[in-house]
Design a protein around this nucleic acid. Structure first.
Lengths: 143, 143
DNA sequence: AGTTTTAATTTACAACCGTAAACTTATTTC
DNA sequence: GAAATAAGTTTACGGTTGTAAATTAAAACT
């Protein structure tokens, strides 16, 4: 049962920090983020606020301030985002895009091993080609 | 030199049809799309219009109507979209997300072979682990 | 206790997006 | 040639997003 909260790119930046630290105050998030992007602290407060409203973060009061904690899991949220993107693009070309992203992504030996194992499994029953699913009924293919 | 046009999810649906057919009239796009989604033709006209304005499509007049043709390449546009997403997420977990998406994506034998070849290459110099790049300086890792 | 600091909340505002009706104009059909 | 059709253009409208200032409220320091 998904906490269906779509996280915008700017909000991702905030979430990543809180996920990594497990919890953080708005001041911490601001300090860390401002080393990377040029946002006013007011902007970051807005983003935190929206994320709470969306159900991605919860707060516990701590004196004057809040401590923000994630309500959604990082890996799950990432997977949903990736799924959503891959649902928008042509299946037939998805393989090429995967190739592209893997080419430009740093992967650990373990990651690579897992991927290799998965691919070896998938290779067994893989189709010769994947149909384009953009125009139903027409079944256009590439070779 | 990118034709930096961000394509929204609804617009993707339109682009996919035109990419696949190479060119199409709004009537064609409408007929095909309406087999998949419940949009009025007015909606599709708006999307086509916006895509032309964004520089993703061009038109050539043909009697009363226009023929719409892509100005941006499908694979390039897909790659940019995927890059953009992967730039938003934590590097350290990117490998897991790739695993996830590959698990759920249909891939041809050829796609798989290319991926395997690439992974084999990358394995040679792959790091033992990939650092989290969410909180600079802290270098949090997972095992 | 009063002043300063800092957090949170409210308000703002333009751009983009999903969704579509209304209007205009050109074309085809009778 | 007049009427009906269909394509494009304009306008619309509420929601989300990026970006942030203004306001309020609470805590910390002197």
């Amino acid at each position: 049962m998904e906490t269906n909260c779509d996280i915008s790119p700017a909000e991702w930046q905030v979430m990543r920090i809180i996920w990594t630290l497990k919890e953080a105050t708005s001041a911490q998030v601001t300090t860390i983020l401002q080393r990377k992007v040029d946002w006013q602290s007011a902007t970051i407060k807005t983003l935190l606020h929206r994320l709470v409203k969306k159900g991605a973060l919860k707060t516990i009061r701590h004196g004057r301030a809040f401590i923000y904690q994630p309500l959604v899991k990082e890996q799950e949220t990432m997977n949903e985002a990736v799924d959503q993107l891959f649902a928008s693009i042509c299946q037939m070309h998805a393989g090429q895009s995967l190739l592209h992203v893997i080419k430009h992504t740093e992967l650990s030996k373990k990651d690579i091993a897992s991927l290799q194992k998965l691919l070896a499994q998938k290779a067994v029953n893989a189709p010769e080609m994947v149909d384009c699913d953009c125009v139903p009924g027409e079944d256009i293919r590439c070779d």
